[in-house]
Amino acid sequence: MDNAGTKNETIIQVKHLDKVFGEEVKNQVLFDLNFEIKRGEFLSLIGPSGSGKSTLMNILGALERSTAGEVIVNGKNINNLNDKDLAEFRNQYLGFIFQFHYLFPEFTALENVLIPYYIKDFSRKPEIINKANKLLSLVELEGFENRKINKLSGGQQQRVAIARSFINDPQIILADEPTGALDTKTSRAIMTLMRKYNEETGATFIIVTHDREIASGTQRIVELVDGKIHKDFLPSEIGEATAWEELERHACVDCDTMKQQKQVKKDENFGKNKNDCKTCP
C-alpha cells in the first residue's frame, strides 16, 4: 500500500480553527482549535452531543469548510482548494465510514467496494477487481461479492463499507460512529478489523464515537466539549484505570442528549447496547 511518508510525521495540522454556522443568527460550534495528528495514529474523537465533534470530522473530511483557521493535510491547506479539487482530494486521500454505512442498494457488495475507484477511473481492470475481492475477504465477506446490499446483515453491510473505504489506499480514514448501529460483538470485530488495517498499512484512523469501549480501544482519545478540546490523552500513558474514569464521566454527560437525539433520528437499535446510554452516578 502506498501510504507515503513515515510514521510519527504530522499528517493533519489544525491551526486556530473556528466554525460558525448561520448568517444572521451566528452559532459558533468550534473555538480556536489547535492540534496535530501523526501519520498512522489510531485516534478516537469523543464528546457529548453538540460538542462539535461531527463538525470537526466533516471539516477534516473536506466536506465542510472552516470559518477561520487552517487545516493542513499532508502539507496541503485544504481551505485553499476549490470544490473540484476538494472532491479529488477526498477521493484520493480519504476513506469514509459512516454510521449508517450509506451503501448503494442498486449495486452488489463488490461493486459498492469499487465505487470510490470507479469515480476516478472506470477502466474495470482485473487488478482492481482482484483488489476489491481481496478487501472483501479481508473483512471476512468471501462469497458475498455478488450479493445485493439489502441481502446482507447490518454487520456485513458495515464490513462492505469498511472495505469500500480502503479501496483507494487512503492515507486517512474517517469513521463517524462506525459501530453505532451494531451490537457489541460485531462492534468489537469491526474495531479489530480497523486496528489491524491500521497496523498493517499505517493508514491514519480518526473515529468519532460515543462508545467508551470503542474509545478505550484506540491509541489516542480527544474529547471535545462545547467546541473546545477538553481532553487529549493517550490511554497507554495515563494508565487504563484513569482512562476509563475519564471515559465514564464522558458517557454520563452524553446520556440524555444522546437519547433525545437518537429518538429524533428514530434509531430503533438505540438502547439495546448497554453502552449506548448510562445514567450518571
Partner: peptide, 16 residues
C-alpha cells in the same frame, strides 16, 4: 439524494 451525497463525499464532482 443520499446516494448522490455519498458519491460526492467519496469524490464525485457536481458535473458527474
Amino acid at each position: 439524494s443520499k446516494q448522490i451525497g455519498i458519491l460526492k463525499a467519496m469524490g464525485a464532482t457536481g458535473s458527474m
